Amino acid sequence: QTVHVKGVQYHFPNPEEAVKFALKVAKDLGGRVEFHGDEIHVE
């Protein structure tokens, strides 16, 4: 599972961890989380 944050990719073997990370980052940055297939983008 890959999380993209402002052009940087973070790889997580566990999808659940990836989602938790993405939600935390989005909250910290005041952004939103978008799901694109296997990828999660924080915009």
Rank of each mutant, 00 (worst) to 15 (best):
E16H: 10
R32H: 12
H36I: 14
A26V: 05
K6I: 07
N14K: 05
G31E: 03
A22Y: 02
P15H: 15
E43Y: 15
G31I: 04
G31Q: 04
T2W: 09
D28Q: 13
F21I: 02
A26P: 00
K27N: 12
P15D: 07
G31Y: 12
P15Q: 14
P15W: 15
E43C: 11
G30D: 08
E43V: 15
K24Y: 07
K24R: 10
A22V: 02
V42M: 02
K6M: 15
F21D: 02
V8G: 05
V5E: 01
K27Q: 13
V25E: 05
L29H: 07
L23E: 13
Q9L: 14
V42Q: 00
Y10P: 00
G31N: 03
F35R: 06
G30T: 04
K20V: 08
V19P: 01
V19I: 15
N14L: 06
H36Q: 08
P13I: 12
E43D: 09
V19H: 11
E17P: 02
N14G: 07
D38I: 09
K6Q: 13
R32P: 02
D38M: 11
H36N: 09
F35I: 11
F35Q: 05
H11V: 10
E34K: 12
E43W: 14
E17R: 05
E34M: 13
I40Y: 05
V5L: 09
F12G: 00
F21W: 13
D38L: 12
Y10H: 07
V42R: 00
V33T: 03
I40W: 06
V3I: 03
K27I: 10
E39H: 12
K24P: 01
F12H: 02
G31D: 03
H11C: 07
K24T: 11
Q9A: 14
A26G: 03
Y10N: 02
T2V: 13
G31H: 04
D38W: 09
G37E: 07
L29G: 05
Q9D: 07
E43H: 14
E34R: 14
T2Y: 08
H36F: 11
V3T: 01
P15F: 15
K20G: 06
L29Q: 07
K20M: 10
Q1W: 15
V5F: 10
